[in-house]
Simulated assay, not measured.
Amino acid sequence: MPDSLTRSATLAAAGLVLLLPLSAVSCSAAQKALDCGNTAVRITNDVAQAGSAFNNAANDPDAAGQALQTLKKDLDQISRNSSDTDVSQAVTDLQTQVDKAQQAIDNKQIPDLKPLGDAASNLSKACTG
């Protein structure tokens, strides 16, 4: 009987050793998705803050530029931390829209924020999809 108990314990331990790497991979993928999702939420908030800054530009003209700089910083962070091609493309698209908004500000124009919001939404979808 002790022999079969030892054999059962050995088989259980071997099974656990085989399962641990698989669960570590799953946790790693889940953690990456969570990190990406959290950053996408932060970027969505950055876009909302940029919108508020643009709406309040008469009172605080520098706020819009500062909001775009925060957005750029967060985009750089997600770009460095993601190896997913869909996320990378969404970040590139959003960076393009941020650059267009910055050009409008530099030219003393009011930027169109709809493409910026759409690009942020696409990033959120890429992170969760």
Rank of each mutant, 00 (worst) to 15 (best):
I78K: 03
C127V: 03
D62K: 14
Q66N: 13
G129Q: 06
A119S: 10
D84T: 06
V87Q: 07
A33S: 13
K32P: 00
A126T: 05
T44A: 14
Q49E: 12
T85G: 08
Q109V: 03
L34K: 13
N56H: 09
T85N: 12
N107W: 05
D62C: 02
D76N: 14
S121H: 06
A9S: 14
A126D: 02
N122L: 06
D3N: 12
A90T: 04
C36V: 01
D86R: 14
V17K: 02
A120S: 09
I105S: 02
R80P: 01
Q95I: 03
Q69A: 15
L113I: 07
A24E: 09
L18Y: 03
S28Y: 15
T10C: 06
G37S: 14
L94F: 02
S4T: 14
P111L: 02
D46V: 01
L113V: 08
A40Q: 04
N81E: 13
N81Q: 14
N59T: 11
Q77L: 13
A58V: 12
D86G: 11
A40W: 01
P2W: 13
D118Q: 11
N38W: 08
Q77F: 09
Q66R: 15
D60F: 06
P21G: 09
D106G: 07
P61Y: 03
K73L: 14
T70F: 13
L19G: 08
G129T: 06
A29R: 15
D74I: 01
P115Q: 03
D84W: 03
A13K: 05
K32Q: 14
T10L: 11
D99L: 10
D118P: 01
S26H: 13
D106M: 05
L22D: 01
L20N: 05
N107L: 12
Q89Y: 04
L5S: 12
Q102F: 01
K73M: 12
S83P: 04
L68N: 00
A12I: 05
A14D: 10
I105M: 06
N107F: 10
C27K: 08
S124A: 08
D3S: 14
L19W: 09
K72I: 08
A29P: 00
Q95L: 05
D3V: 13
D46S: 10
D118V: 08
K108T: 11
Q109T: 05
L123Q: 01
V98I: 09
L16W: 08
G129S: 08
V41D: 10
I43Q: 01
D60Y: 05
G51R: 07
S28M: 09
R80G: 12
K73Q: 15
V41F: 08
L94Y: 00
L5K: 15
Q109A: 12
V47T: 05
S83M: 10
S124Q: 12
